[in-house]
Design a protein around this nucleic acid. Sequence first.
DNA 1: CTCCATCACGTAAACGTTTAAACTGTTTCA
DNA 2: TGAAACAGTTTAAACGTTTACGTGATGGAG
Lengths: 341, 341
Amino acid sequence: MGASIKDVAARAGVSIATVSHVLNGTRPTRQHTRDRVLYAIRELGYAQNQSARNLARGRSTLLGLLVSDVRNPFFPDITAAFQDQALAHDMDALVLNTNYDPQRTLNSVRRLMGLQVPGVAILTSQIDPSVIDMLAERRIAAVYLDLGKVSESISNIMLEYEDGIVKALEYLTQLGHRRIAYIGGPMALKSAQRRKRAFLDMTARLGLEAAQAIDADFTVTGGYFACSKLLSGSMPTAILAGNDLTAIGILHRAYDGGLRVPDDLSVVGFDDIVFAEYTQPALTTVSVPRTEIGKVAFQALWAMMSDPNQAGREFRVGTNLVIRQSAASPIEARYREASQE
Amino acid sequence: MGASIKDVAARAGVSIATVSHVLNGTRPTRQHTRDRVLYAIRELGYAQNQSARNLARGRSTLLGLLVSDVRNPFFPDITAAFQDQALAHDMDALVLNTNYDPQRTLNSVRRLMGLQVPGVAILTSQIDPSVIDMLAERRIAAVYLDLGKVSESISNIMLEYEDGIVKALEYLTQLGHRRIAYIGGPMALKSAQRRKRAFLDMTARLGLEAAQAIDADFTVTGGYFACSKLLSGSMPTAILAGNDLTAIGILHRAYDGGLRVPDDLSVVGFDDIVFAEYTQPALTTVSVPRTEIGKVAFQALWAMMSDPNQAGREFRVGTNLVIRQSAASPIEARYREASQE
DNA sequence: CTCCATCACGTAAACGTTTAAACTGTTTCA
DNA sequence: TGAAACAGTTTAAACGTTTACGTGATGGAG
């Protein structure tokens, strides 16, 4: 039962409207009154009742952020950046887990609508069209990841996976690799599709020998077994993984098979999760700038919210190759091997 | 913009009070009317306006969850579990980052109070007393981690670090280790203090030879350099780390120094972060059941919220040793070594 | 037949804000 | 001097719920 705006008004000897205007800067006030109000606020330890505020304004200061699973090391950076931005604009971010479950996603969006959120960022890989419609109908600003669609109230963040794949392959070929294999994710995921396609396109363009590409499931053990398959055939000198977990699986398989990375086999990951830095050897990988994604997601929403007749936009965020120790020249590797024996 | 309770009432031919009661089950209604109301709700796509609801009830359905940094791999599991519980009770969890900054913590709590949250879980390592007071004054249910204090509206979760240290040391001694060193965290952290103390107490009790314990900073590189120091002296056969990041640093140092883990050196971590499973070799570590912490945190709040004159309680959550590959018997290790040469 | 419970529901007053509109002085200008 | 403009402030009506209280049926007991 804290103090209300009425108490503040009484204490400062002004009307509640004035207090409100002082608080929101919605109308000029004299220095004198402002001081009195501010002083009263301090004295009473008054805190605005957001519920009442939201009700009166018809919108809340909460933003929705839907992710598939906060436990996935991909997301924390995004949510943190999003939150920081939100906070800087005096808003809050409610992050909800969909657990990859469409039903739960739908429920989450319902909840968010009940909370009168002015905008929501849906950063999951799979998006149900009915969710998109629900939000669009109510004119709630929305931003998606790789949705591809942009409209009145819908913005989109396009991740330039292709770019990253190209950089990785150029790097590997410059190192001298010709037999490069790819281990990707499940084709149900758009991101996995695009990465694989980029790999195939690029290897064709670079004229690399019959590049193998096999689909795993974006997990460590998936990468491990996919790598096993690869090693039983004609061995590649380098493997590009569709994500870092897969790459870690490859690292393990190589280790168990007595192959030294990067001497006998180069491995390049994708995502640059926190632990990419701590694998043995440290993983060379394509970094997806997660902090920027979070930032951009907020900015996309903010733009649409602050100017309602501003249409949604397409945002692009690039990817970068971060070079660590898991990839090296295959020639050099053979040289080393020779000199050791 | 959306339909309001009035629209529903009109459509169903009842009063808004009835609609409210149907929605909340706060008083008996006839099957017939209930059906009509529910039907109208479906037709209109009505969603309760939480702001209005919260205002009327004087409390929100939002729960606050303060953590130091969502990027810290320790937290996502906790927040996810907390959220799941909250959702199951028709509440939401607003998780805020304090970034280890007391000022920011204070602001966050202010925000939460403005949102009229009925409860907040503060799961950071450092807690400013003024924050505790603010919450206690307003009778907002609060649960802390290792605060040690319990009162009217304050519950506490006690993590049994000691227990885990004991289990780890018993395991190592059973394997035959006698020279066990410890690399802990900064003494500014209570958790680091308690772990170190437990280590010292227990090694003394077990009568192990002058156990070395040095303080690092809970990071990978911190662990790396601390391990260097250790190796330059009289080498231990096993190192217990204050957290997993430190343990990973040790693993790296051992690798770089040509030591094989666990053959030449056993390493045991603490926390069981996701990646403990994926290190090379997989890390034997003391697991802190994060999911349970999240669950318990919610339940603590729920108990205090649902029965306001129920006092706060002390909850305990234990720790467990999870055995993987980074620790082995030192005798066996020497045997292997001998047979290889 | 009357009275009183009981049941099912409606009425209307909160809850704490925001904000359009009305109301005060002052100042400015013809 | 009077009107007009203006800055600063107040008044009061929303916003969409919850919930204490009131009311009109129905039915059984006396």
